[in-house]
């Protein structure tokens, strides 16, 4: 339930909506809870960015998620 996934902010639209990239998937998320700019990484939970992350650490976490999902599909 408290799962949260790192994503890169690609675009910021009107009304606190951001387009983020999870690696293979792009999605609109709400940015009400964070102050971010394009190119920064956020942690996304239930469609909301809940915190900013450093770029390097986010990429590292994203790679681990990718491995986990690959393992689950085997």
């Amino acid at each position: 339930m408290c799962i949260a996934v790192p994503a890169e902010v690609l675009e910021i639209k009107e009304g606190n909506i951001g387009v983020v990239d999870y690696g293979d998937l792009q999605q609109e998320v709400r940015l009400d809870l964070v102050d971010v700019r394009v190119g920064e990484f956020v942690l996304v939970h239930v469609g909301f960015a809940i915190q900013k992350l450093s770029r390097e650490e986010a990429l590292q976490t994203r790679e681990i998620f990718r491995q986990v999902y690959a393992a689950m599909e085997e």
Binding site: M1, C2, A4, R30, D32, L33, H45, G47, F48, I50
Partner: peptide
Amino acid sequence: VGFETTAPT
């Protein structure tokens, strides 16, 4: 439902 992670959303 949800803890402190979810309630702010």
